[in-house]
């Protein structure tokens, strides 16, 4: 369970024009979608944008399966939100809210599916460059982001593993037994990761 994809599609090698598009442009797309999702008030506009993004995603050659894999973890949540908002605020608003979330997820996946992690890191390092004079260390900043992104699926996997082992010990009704191991495992994982980085000479402060 430890490695299932989570929210964002992993990089898929390819040569499409989206793969070759500048990173800044792709980032602006993601950023713009996040911004627009609060300005757009008509669900039909959201639907059109979503359809466009899905089209772009398929053009990258990553395939429908990857697209579905990026959305699937949220499907249950979105269903709950959709039904609840429908009941509270009516169908058009509910549709708009759910569609806007999907727009953001697909846009972010479009970025991650067409950009290798190393290029993302290079991009972050370049973008954070100007902050160097305030004592920031772009390399370490980028490294921390990379570890965070890689840890989300690990932690989600830990939730599942821990649930199973609690069940095996007949403890599934004890919230402490359910939650605590997730955090213990996560902290242990964080320290192992930190130690492994240190051993490789990565992530230590340059003086």
């Amino acid at each position: 369970m430890r490695g299932h994809g989570f929210l964002l599609a992993n990089y898929v090698p390819g040569q499409s024009f989206i793969h070759r598009a500048p990173l800044a442009l792709k980032f602006l797309l993601v950023f713009g979608c996040g911004l627009a999702s609060f300005i757009v008030v008509d669900w039909r506009v959201s639907l059109a944008v979503l359809a466009g993004l899905c089209g772009l995603f398929l053009l990258t050659g990553a395939g429908l399966k990857k697209l579905w894999a990026a959305i699937r973890p949220l499907a249950a949540v979105l269903l709950v939100i959709g039904v609840f908002q429908w009941w509270m605020l009516g169908a058009p608003t509910a549709a708009r809210i759910v569609l806007n979330i999907l727009v953001c997820v697909v846009a972010a996946s479009l970025l991650t599916a067409t950009t290798p992690v190393q290029r993302l890191l290079d991009g972050v390092v370049r973008a954070a460059g100007p902050f160097k004079r305030f004592g920031a260390d772009p390399e370490r900043f980028a490294l921390t982001i990379a570890i965070m992104l890689r840890s989300i699926p690990y932690i989600a996997g830990t939730f599942a593993d821990v649930r199973d082992s609690a069940r095996a010990r007949g403890l599934e009704r004890n919230p402490r037994a359910l939650i605590l191991p997730v955090f213990i495992t996560s902290v242990a994982f964080a320290r192992q990761t930190g130690e492994a980085l240190a051993a490789r000479g990565l992530g230590e402060a340059e003086d």
């Binding site: 921390t144 982001i145 992104l149 690990y154 932690i155 964080a190 320290r191 192992q192 980085l197």
Partner: peptide, 18 residues
């Protein structure tokens, strides 16, 4: 901060996200 601190920061950020 050393590498272990970075690991902790990253993993706790991921925990909040999860």
């Amino acid at each position: 901060w050393n590498a272990t601190d970075l690991g902790l920061i990253a993993v706790f950020a991921a925990l909040v996200a999860a």
